[in-house]
Amino acid sequence: MKKVSMQDIADRLGVSKGTVSLVLSGKAKGNRISDETSMKVKQAAKEMNYYPNEIARSLSTGITMSIGVIVTDISNEFFGSLTFHIQERAKKYGYTVITMNTNESLEEFYDAVSILLNKQIDGIIFVPVAGGECVVEKIIERNLPIVQIDRFYPELKASYIVVDNYKASMQATELLIHKGHKKIAAINYDINLNTLLERRQGYIDMMKRYGLFDPSLIKDINYEDQEEQIRQAIIDLKDNPDKVEAIFFCSRRVFITGIKHMRREGIRIPEDMEVLSFDKIETISIANIPISFIEQPIARMGEGTVDMLMEQIHGDRQIKQSVLNTEIKHSI
């Protein structure tokens, strides 16, 4: 079926193509086009299933009305929910969202940025990956609006919205200590990113404050081989001569994999070990597993990031950096 053009609408109504263009671009009143003509053009466009040529419009205006979003793991509940709130907020500005996934890979991060730049998007919201500063610098050189979310590159002068990971980790660790636990393990990704480093350090500093720190209870997991390494970490903690009483999982995905292997090893929660997760896990309530978790303000993060990006797109290039607080909650 032939795509309907503005000329087709003009021919049907016996008006000029320019009149149709002005009406459909919202400029009718400023060009003395009557309400009656505007109504006829809009009605004809609807009846004829007319859709604007976004490519042509972006070439003439330099604006695509689209933004890019780059996350590290779209299958992760946290990033899935974050992307949802970003998309819903972007809709209110009339923007569409193109989402890309990196799997914590620098190469895939570079590819995602390249694809989005080639699509001439108006701005990018992204979750940084380790070593990606040079990629982001190229975006900055193009004067393209960007906002970092969940993590940030400390060396770059760029806007971001994150949570206070260090404070959240300290509060979570102290909660476990106040419950009477002394042997508290921490399982975390071994990735050089400030978010994960802050969570690790918060745990370490709180354990040291109470004189409980034992470096052997920290299990740093390689992202590429995480399934096997988390399995082995759980076995090591189960077989530890000094009974491990609790585990602080420093990320959602580590927690989900860790819980799976705890159950396979016959570890009862919380009778044998108590667990605390960084991030809320919706499915845990269904499984009836009693856990404590750190809840991040995902909606505020997603919506606030879009607001920041839109301010830049509309000309305000002031760098804004927001750090939000978290809450510790309980599943049941």
Rank of each mutant, 00 (worst) to 15 (best):
K3E: 05
S5E: 05
D8G: 10
I9E: 09
K17P: 04
T19S: 14
S21H: 12
L22C: 05
V23K: 03
L24I: 03
G26H: 05
K27Q: 14
G30H: 03
I33G: 10
E36Y: 10
K40H: 05
K42E: 14
K46R: 13
E47I: 06
E47F: 05
N49A: 09
N49C: 08
P52T: 12
N53V: 03
T64I: 09
M65K: 14
S66M: 14
T72N: 07
I74V: 13
F84S: 12
I86E: 12
Q87D: 14
Q87A: 13
G94P: 01
Y95A: 03
I98G: 08
N101S: 04
A112V: 02
S114M: 08
L116Y: 00
N118V: 02
Q120E: 09
D122F: 05
I124H: 03
F126D: 01
G132M: 02
E133R: 10
C134P: 01
C134L: 12
I140Q: 12
I140F: 08
I140W: 06
E141M: 11
P145A: 05
P154N: 06
E155F: 02
Y160H: 12
V162T: 15
V163M: 05
D164Y: 05
A168P: 08
S169M: 06
T173K: 02
E174D: 14
H181N: 14
H181V: 06
K182M: 06
Y189D: 04
L196V: 08
R199F: 06
G202P: 08
K208I: 03
Y210H: 14
L217C: 09
L217P: 10
L217A: 10
I218K: 08
Y223R: 13
I230F: 00
R231Y: 07
Q232E: 15
L237D: 03
N240P: 01
D242R: 10
D242V: 10
F249T: 02
S251T: 13
V254K: 06
G258D: 11
M262L: 15
E265P: 00
G266H: 09
I269W: 06
L276N: 05
L276I: 15
D279S: 12
K280M: 11
K280R: 13
I284W: 02
I286D: 04
A287F: 15
I289T: 12
P290R: 12
I291H: 02
E295P: 00
A299N: 08
A299D: 10
A299T: 06
E303K: 11
G304P: 03
V306H: 07
E311R: 15
E311S: 13
R317E: 02
Q321L: 05
S322T: 15
E327L: 05
K329I: 03
S331A: 11
I332K: 12
